[in-house]
Simulated assay, not measured.
Amino acid sequence: METVAALYRYPVKSMLGEALTVVEVTERGLRGDRVAAVLDGAGAVGSAKHPRKWGELLRCRGRFDRDGSVVVELPDGGVLSAGDPELDTRLSKLLGRDVRVSQTPGEGEGGLLERAVPEYDGGAPDHARASAVTDATGTAITSGAVRPGTFFDFGTVHLVTTATLGSLRSAYPAGDFDARRFRPNLVVDVPGGGTGFPEDAWVGGNLRIGDALFRVLVPTPRCVVPTLAHAELPADPALMRTVAREHRIPVLDLGRLSCVGVYLEVLEPGAVRVGAPVTLV
């Protein structure tokens, strides 16, 4: 039987997150996940999917303090609370422009979300690639918006299996397919070191994971973020080229995209802990 191998949440969008042993799943996803984001004066929501503009966020870590407030660990080791003006000042210096941390989804000018268009096949839908514009950083980008009322791009829960990571590792042994690169909420262990991409077959079905019930919505298209440095994990541009070669599949009406894992929606809230069974309903 498949079981939960790891749990992660990311209190501040596009910053490093925190590993958990147990978490309460609410109707909007894991409690405390993406409850804050960094915004700039142009209304853009900080996302490492535009690395030249926001990549430095991956040198920061968001977590919850003992009193339940969101804090940010900065690259120099400093720890400041969200809402502290000094945190905004330090992040502005790090990013080279005025920014602030918001815990109110919907702030800014419509939650603008910018994504760099990857060079590898399947990194963006063809129509998005055709309509991309080059911004002041010299990056070809597409623009959209975060999910209304949240700081999520699309799905509120992301799952990946150890079988998928193992299959990609076999295709590119020199690559480090550490699950953290793909920023999942749930890492599911497939017994016997299974291979292939088993979560593809779960799309459209329901998963009972611990006390919570989820619907599997769609494969998760991957951007450039897994190729970037994450804490001690070095940058590796070849990772997503491997995904593009090994697992480029149809996603809704967007064409064949490079995918790792699946997005879930919550049908029944409940507690999930590491080691919990995962059952396809």
Rank of each mutant, 00 (worst) to 15 (best):
E114K: 07
G106V: 02
L74F: 08
R115V: 10
A37L: 06
E27S: 11
L95Q: 10
K13N: 05
E119F: 11
L39N: 00
T142Y: 02
I141A: 11
D88G: 02
P11H: 12
S143F: 09
S14Y: 06
G41I: 00
L74G: 00
R100N: 08
V72F: 12
G138L: 05
W54E: 04
H127I: 13
D88Q: 03
R31N: 03
S143L: 15
R28S: 13
R52S: 14
D153E: 15
L20T: 08
G149I: 02
G83E: 04
P75R: 05
S69T: 13
A124R: 05
A19K: 12
K93F: 10
G122R: 01
M15F: 14
D76T: 03
S92C: 12
D121I: 11
L91Y: 07
E114M: 08
M15E: 07
R28F: 09
T134K: 10
A37V: 08
R28N: 13
A145P: 02
F64H: 12
R129W: 08
E119L: 14
E73Y: 00
D40C: 14
L112I: 15
F152H: 15
K13H: 09
R31S: 12
T139H: 06
G110I: 03
G144C: 11
M15C: 15
A136V: 12
G138N: 11
A128H: 11
D40Q: 13
P75E: 02
R115W: 10
D84I: 03
R66I: 00
L30N: 00
V117Q: 07
T150K: 06
V23E: 06
A37T: 12
E119Q: 14
S81F: 04
V22L: 04
E107V: 13
L87I: 04
K13D: 07
G77I: 09
E27A: 14
T142F: 08
P125I: 07
E107Y: 00
T21V: 11
V101Q: 01
E119H: 14
V133L: 10
V38P: 04
T142R: 09
R59S: 14
R59G: 09
G55C: 05
G32R: 06
D121G: 13
K93D: 13
L95R: 11
W54N: 05
H127V: 14
L112W: 05
D84Q: 03
P105C: 07
G46M: 09
E56H: 11
P75I: 07
T137K: 08
H50Q: 15
T142C: 12
R34Y: 04
A42V: 05
A82V: 15
I141C: 12
L87P: 01
L95F: 10
D67E: 15
S14I: 06
D65H: 10
D98Y: 01
P125Y: 10
R115H: 14
W54R: 09
A145L: 01
E27H: 12
D98W: 04
E107N: 07
L30M: 13
R63Q: 08
E114Y: 12
P105I: 02
R63N: 00
A37W: 02
D121R: 15
V35K: 04
L87F: 06
A140L: 13
S92E: 07
